[in-house]
Design a protein around this nucleic acid. Structure first.
Length: 444
DNA sequence: GTTGGCAGCC
């Protein structure tokens, strides 16, 4: 039986689906038609994180263990078997693309608690890797947080790790995304639903308490002014998925639950800072996935780093547990990256499956609703979210020891005592970097 | 009234 398998040029590119033949193999000619110059396929073994090659015989690529499965397969190009100095024979397109990768971009952190500071962001996000910048955006006059901020990592793997999971910061779930991209992690984990036909008297608390019956609600967003819809985010994507398509009665009105995804994929073509995303790339244009990357101005280095690792209340479960909760593996990260570059969130559907939440009732904290202004948010209940992933994860098992991307993951979490909290305390005010250190691109 | 929240400067 023939099927489609997902193939990407490399781990930073969006996969496309290629049809296999009746016997289950993929013709090398089919592959080469989409990826000129490609001579084979590989994929990451989810158990070991190591790349595996795909058998090639008589011009046919054979599925591993007889099944293409849900892996993302990556092209192999001849260069990898060549000595230096022979690049001239290579497909120039493929070569250019592979050079343009591994760039970090600023990441926007949405849904921050009003009280979160740069220090909080530093403490939380440093678990993924070295940070070059953290920022909480504030009202210039009042200093009040606007409820979002930015972070930038020093290396791309840290960025990928960060984008692949969701984040609880100071008691609230936050989204981290490439700026100005609607196709972010929220779709990858697909735990957010759209609530249509809301009435004006439905408060965030109403929606939360209603939908909590089906599973833990971690966020409610109601646009202001009133627009007759809302978003509800569950801890468990399966809960979100199960509710999609249903009608529910809330406060006497019938609301409709559907997928919190843009209806049209055309839209995201206009979403990219005015650069025509697919076309008009200059000869040395950036890799299409890096929409938020505004050139490479020197980043202001932030002192310290380390800080309070051991006592980080933002991450009660620790990274090891986080990994278990999401069953992350490099293929997912790659798929996550692919998904966020092009809005193709299909690859990740169903792959990320946090365990059923065991805890309830921590949601006394205010809903994240910019329009409701400051001061109305009761203190967060704090540590109640600790149990992510305590539930049933069946797939790869083997514990967390393997870590993620060849093991860097677990090490990053260890903050511990040593921390050398040098940079802490100097990050107050409007940003963690000085004015002079701001990147120069974008507005010059 | 059924698809959000995005930076100080351009």
């Amino acid at each position: 039986m023939n099927q489609y398998l997902q193939v990407a040029e490399d781990e930073n590119e969006e996969p496309i689906e290629l049809p296999s033949e009746e016997d289950g193999t993929l013709l090398l000619s089919t592959l080469a038609a989409q990826f000129p110059g490609s001579c084979g396929l590989k994929y990451r073994n989810p158990d070991s994180g190591v790349l595996r090659g795909i058998r090639l015989a008589d011009g046919r690529l054979h599925p591993p263990d007889g099944m293409w499965g849900n892996h993302i397969f990556y092209c192999v190009f001849p260069k990898e078997n060549k000595r230096k100095g022979e690049e001239g024979l290579e497909n120039p397109m493929a070569k250019t693309k592979r050079v343009e990768k591994h760039k970090c971009s600023d990441l926007i952190v949405l849904g921050l608690p009003w009280k979160s500071t740069e220090d909080d962001l530093q403490a939380y996000f440093s678990q993924f890797g070295e940070l070059l910048m953290v920022q909480v955006k504030r009202d210039l006059k009042t200093g009040q947080s606007k409820g979002f901020g930015f972070v930038r990592f020093a290396d791309y793997e840290a960025q990928l790790k960060c984008l692949a999971v969701r984040h609880m910061i100071d008691g609230r779930w936050c989204d981290v995304r490439i700026p100005n991209s609607r196709e972010g992690t929220q779709h990858i984990v697909n735990r957010k639903v759209f609530i249509g036909r809301c009435t004006e008297d439905m408060t965030a608390d109403d929606l939360r308490s209603y939908f909590n019956k089906f599973g833990e609600v971690v966020d409610v967003f109601i646009p202001k002014p009133f627009r007759a819809f809302a978003f509800v985010t569950f801890a468990d994507p399966e809960v979100a998925h199960a509710l999609c398509g249903e009608d529910h009665i809330i406060k006497g009105a019938s609301v409709h639950v559907s997928n919190a995804a843009p209806k049209s994929f055309d839209k995201h073509n206009q979403d990219n800072r005015g650069k025509g995303p697919m076309f008009n790339q200059g000869p040395q244009g950036f890799s299409p996935g890096q929409g938020g990357n505004w050139g490479a101005g020197q980043q202001g280095k932030q002192g310290g780093g380390g800080g309070q690792g051991g006592q980080n209340m933002n991450n009660p479960m620790g990274l090891g547990n986080l990994g278990a909760a999401f069953q992350l593996n490099p293929a997912m990260v790659a798929a996550a990256q692919a998904a966020l570059t092009q809005g193709g969130w299909g690859p990740l559907l169903g792959m990320m499956n946090p365990g059923q939440q065991q805890q309830q009732g921590t949601s006394a904290s205010g809903e994240h609703n910019q329009a409701t202004a400051a001061g109305n948010n009761p203190p967060s209940a704090g540590s109640g979210f600790g149990n992510i992933g305590a539930g049933n994860n069946s797939s790869t098992s083997g514990g967390n020891s393997g870590g993620f991307l060849s093991g860097g993951w677990n090490n990053a979490a260890q903050g511990g005592a040593g921390g050398g909290g040098d940079g802490a305390g100097s990050n107050q005010g409007t940003g963690a970097w000085g004015h002079d250190a701001k990147p120069q691109a974008g507005w010059n």
